[in-house]
Design a protein around this nucleic acid. Structure first.
Length: 512
RNA sequence: GGCGCUUUAGCUCAGUCGGUUAGAGCAGCGGAAUCAUAAUCCGCGUGUCCGGGGUUCGAGUCCCUGAAGCGCCA
């Protein structure tokens, strides 16, 4: 079986879960579920980044140990994921022993490869932002006199410390070569351009250790130093797979790292360079998605308009959120979360189109045929067109998923649903029933139910609960989302004549 | 300041290699049907394709230039 490895970033425990976190994780989940249905050996990883000065200071402020603070926030993530139907195979914590072992092994291998050296580091640091600023950056931002952070305007501290460095500059040419030779390595294309121009403008070596705080993984053989965020956090993608035992885990390299655009450089430049240094294969793809605004406004703490996942889940079912987030905005672009728009998509696409097609089809099957599917005597032109459309949808959705084009996949599925509704009008089963044309009636109803079944199968990764319910109505048995595969269930004609369907129950009741 | 991207119907956007009347969804207007969650289906768009210049038999699609917005870097 072919492997498939998909990751989210590890989320920083200084932050409560918000819309951006659930967005990335839902996207990863949909990919994982789709690939499992395509019978690939899927490993879907998410987790948390617990280390760093910010967490250490926040914990001190509250008078608790960093690990206690981390435990509290970790709990929020770990209880949230099941509610959103997230099917991750593992959850990595950077405070875990297995991760620390992986990070220290990574460090040693970088060291053995001659990619690490010790020097002095001098810079200006903003603690709240965890950002370093050079003197020129402060001057350019007109912040030099006041000595404050160009981002948050709070005070920056001068920092000079002994530090280990990673020879990032040594990998500049190979990175450029790799990005150019692999057009799909960084997506979307606009991000790829940005990374390329960043690398081409010249890379500086990277400071990779700190002596100013202790909450992290110690540098092997030099306990004064803690390994700084890059090597610590990025190595999670390997440590979760057991690295360094084996040195190249079976699921490596990752098929896709899903990330927010804010951490693109770390994933598309630092991480590949590190992997080059230790001679491991690079991830096949890095996809940076966009940001959400809420009702047209940027989310921020001061505005208090950040959407809390727990509150959203009180208002909407997980599947509805999953659908909306991936349908509303092309993955990779920024988008706006508005309740009006969510309701409109729900009512038009889910309630009116999918839900109602299911409902009217099963209602007619029950009304005219006691819920029992008949045989298809003769295929009409319209029947063949419908089948061809369903099969084209299956191919095209698979292609979309390979490109993380969720919105296009959903649009394509919706097109089949609309075709189904048109097919109902064109063939008017109610007239066939009235005129006693039972052979044709059976055939039309069969094509509808089979179309619905295959539509549900394609939507299953997006809306596991809703589609389980839909398949339950069609198949008339208790079903589980992870028992379906495209090869076993995806063919046209799996349902046999004589099959009994349930009476319909509204799947997506209209919102007011 | 450098590099890049975007600007197409009321709204959100699609338009591959330049080639017949520039498309989709939503919203709006009109009609049909009645199986259904009053849902569905059909019909209806004379849009300065941001402005200006150019290349070409022909440009939304290529080149130059200007404007507005955005991103990355400095």
């Amino acid at each position: 079986m072919e492997n498939y490895y998909v990751t989210t970033p590890i989320y920083y425990v200084n932050d409560e879960p918000h819309l951006g976190h659930i967005y990335t994780t839902i996207a990863a989940d949909v990919l994982a579920r789709h690939q499992r249905m395509s019978e690939r050996d899927v490993f879907f990883l998410t987790g948390v980044d617990e280390h760093g000065q910010k967490v250490q200071q926040a914990a001190e402020k509250r008078g608790i140990a960093p690990i206690e603070l981390a435990d509290q926030v970790v709990e929020r993530y770990q209880s949230l994921w099941p509610e959103l139907q997230i099917s991750n195979d593992d959850f990595i914590r950077t405070s875990s022993d297995r991760h620390k072992a992986g990070v220290q092994a990574m460090w040693r291998r970088l060291e053995n490869a001659g990619a690490i050296y010790k020097d002095f580091y001098e810079d200006w640091y903003c603690v709240p932002c965890e950002a370093y600023w050079t003197e020129t950056q402060l001057k350019d931002a007109d912040c030099w006199d006041a000595k404050h952070c160009p981002d948050c305007k709070r005070a920056v501290e001068k920092i000079q410390e002994e530090s280990y460095f990673f020879r990032l500059s040594a990998f500049q040419d190979r990175l450029i070569e790799h990005i150019k030779a692999n057009p799909d390595f960084i997506a979307p294309a606009s991000r790829r351009n940005e990374v390329l121009s960043f690398v081409e403008s010249g890379l500086r070596d990277l400071s990779i250790s700190r002596t100013t705080f202790s909450w992290g993984v110690p540098v092997p053989g030099d306990d004064k130093h803690v390994i700084y965020v890059w090597i610590d956090a990025l190595t999670n993608y390997l440590s979760a797979l057991g690295f360094p035992e084996p040195e190249q885990p079976a699921h490596w390299p990752a098929d896709v790292h899903l990330i927010g655009k804010d951490i693109l450089r770390f994933h598309a430049v630092y991480w590949p360079a590190m992997l080059m240094a230790v001679e491991l294969p690079l991830p096949k793809r890095i996809f940076a998605h966009g940001w959400w605004t809420v009702e047209g406004e940027k989310m921020s703490k001061s505005k208090g308009n950040a959407l809390r996942p727990a509150e959203l889940l009180e208002k909407y079912e997980a599947d509805v959120l999953r659908y909306f987030l991936l349908r509303e905005v092309p993955f990779g672009q920024d988008g706006d979360f508005s309740f009006t728009s969510l309701k409109q998509r729900y009512n038009t696409e889910l309630a009116n189109d999918v839900g109602n097609l299911l409902n009217r089809s099963l209602a007619m099957l029950n009304k005219y045929r006691d819920g029992v599917l008949g045989a298809v005597a003769e295929e009409s032109e319209a029947d063949r067109a419908l089948i061809a459309d369903v099969e084209a949808m299956q191919r095209e959705v698979a292609a979309c998923m390979d490109k993380q084009a969720f919105h296009l996949a959903l649009e394509r599925i919706n097109a089949v649903v609309r075709h189904g509704n048109r097919y109902v009008e064109d063939n008017a089963p109610w007239s066939l029933a009235k005129q006693g044309e039972n052979a044709r009636l059976d055939s039309v109803l069969y094509h509808l139910v089979e179309t619905l079944r295959l539509v549900a199968l394609q939507l299953l990764p997006f809306m596991p609960e809703k589609m389980t319910a839909m398949l339950g109505q069609i198949l008339n048995r208790k079903v589980q989302a992870d028992n379906f595969s495209f090869s076993a269930d995806g063919g046209w004609g799996v349902l046999a004549a004589g099959h009994q369907c349930r009476k319909p129950e509204p799947l997506f009741p209209r919102m007011d």
